[in-house]
Design a protein around this nucleic acid. Structure first.
Lengths: 235, 235
DNA sequence: GCTTCGCTTTGACTTTTGTCAAATTCGAGT
DNA sequence: ACTCGAATTTGACAAAAGTCAAAGCGAAGC
């Protein structure tokens, strides 16, 4: 593992206040692995044996049921996942796969629990992380129950767009069918929602979306400060 | 506060392993209050100043947006709520109101954070509680995205029914419109879903539902072990 | 027992979203 | 630049869920 990678991981809020010895203990136990795209890293129902950190690449969290799949979130570097399952020694409720070639740091669950018990700062950071994740999911549930498909799309665009002189530009880093699944609709409905947004100044070319009139989108999304203003979006 | 109440609260998993002195510190700082039905206890967007414990009664968690409301869960004694907001010193993402006359124990947020920092057993219990709540919401999100309305209803009935010689009996402790909101549908749709379940052996009289053929319901709900088999249901 | 108010159900209709199939476009690799 | 397979879009239709309005039911109080 390169020193720069360690620095990156060290800088994560989760490890920010942790003691040097404890951090080293985690890193010594950890494995850094490369995975090609489309590798399933975690299967729901299995025992949680590692805390994962996305160091490079892109990871999708998803759930499957009856052959169907729904995307729960996307993880870009540097973020951790399945902390909850690791801490309570339960099976995963979600599955994960790489969407692009990725490098993952995998910290054995036992090591995480041990350091948690012994390092107050780490315990605090873990709680913060868990609480934030919890709040993310609550936001997703609210969005799912209270907004229509097109509103969810508008909100997502607003949240992920980059303001430029030309208006809002959004570059989707994955297949549109994944976005559709995350937003809780079929690919066909997503496609039609984009088409419907055309009259609000949205033009799509491939995975790049340009929104001439960001305000129109914001109005459409019926923004909720509580839902949309937060540090780390769910995806 | 009666000694029996303290015993009940003490028995909560959240306080199970906590030291005597720390527990007393929490209780000394806490208030026990009675509220009539339909009192809003918490308003989303406000600062989280108390950890709440439902000692008696019934509490609804909900979110509102644009005048609409959606129910996120129901809390029966003895359970705590808004732990996440209390720990990260953030505003509530959900609101809460009493559905029946209730008694609530309210522990100041500062006291909770202080004991968290000083008592490892409590820190562990907090993480367990948070992690379980997190997993509850993930289950709700999955259910919302992957099952149809009638499937959600069937699953809820199965999860909340009591097996009797006559089949499954479910007694709804609140208005049906709340159940509809929790399940993510309108009251009309809920009513029609009940009607549709009639041909699967379900009969409704007021707030009591009898399911002659529990298996039929289970088949309808397309059970997912991960979604449906867990200790504390979301509602 | 009756009345009343509020919750629930039902009917008729609309909107939203999903399904299936076919056409089209995109993009990785040659 | 070209080709092929995969991803996306479009069309036609079906299913699920919401809306509005009216009727029905039920529990609390007279």
């Amino acid at each position: 593992m390169r020193a720069t990678d360690i620095q990156t991981v060290r800088a994560l809020p989760l490890f920010a206040g942790i003691g040097e010895a404890q951090f080293n203990a985690l890193m010594d136990a950890a494995l850094l692995q490369r995975f090609p795209a489309q590798v399933q890293l975690i299967r729901e129902g299995e025992e949680a044996d590692f805390l994962h950190v996305v160091v490079e690449g892109l990871v999708e969290m998803f759930a499957s049921s009856d052959g169907e799949e729904t995307t729960i979130g996307f993880l870009a570097p540097v973020s951790t996942f399945i902390l909850a399952a690791v801490l309570v020694e339960k099976v995963y409720l979600q599955s994960a796969r790489t969407l692009t070639p990725s490098r993952l740091l995998m910290i054995p669950a036992g090591a995480v629990r041990k350091v948690f018990a012994g390092d107050t700062a780490f315990a605090g950071a873990v709680v913060n992380e868990l609480a934030e994740r919890y709040r993310d999911i609550v936001r997703q549930l609210r969005t799912q129950k209270m907004r229509t498909g097109i509103e969810r799309l508008a909100a997502w665009l607003v949240a992920h767009g980059e303001a430029t002189p030309d208006g809002l530009i959004v570059r989707i880093a994955f297949e549109k069918v994944k976005l559709a699944s995350f937003l809780g609709m079929t690919r066909e409905t997503l496609s039609r929602s984009f088409a419907a947004l055309a009259e609000h100044g949205v033009s799509v070319s491939g995975r790049t979306i340009r929104c001439a009139d960001a305000d129109a989108l914001v109005r459409l999304a019926r923004p909720e400060p509580l839902l949309d203003e937060h540090g780390r979006p769910a995806a």
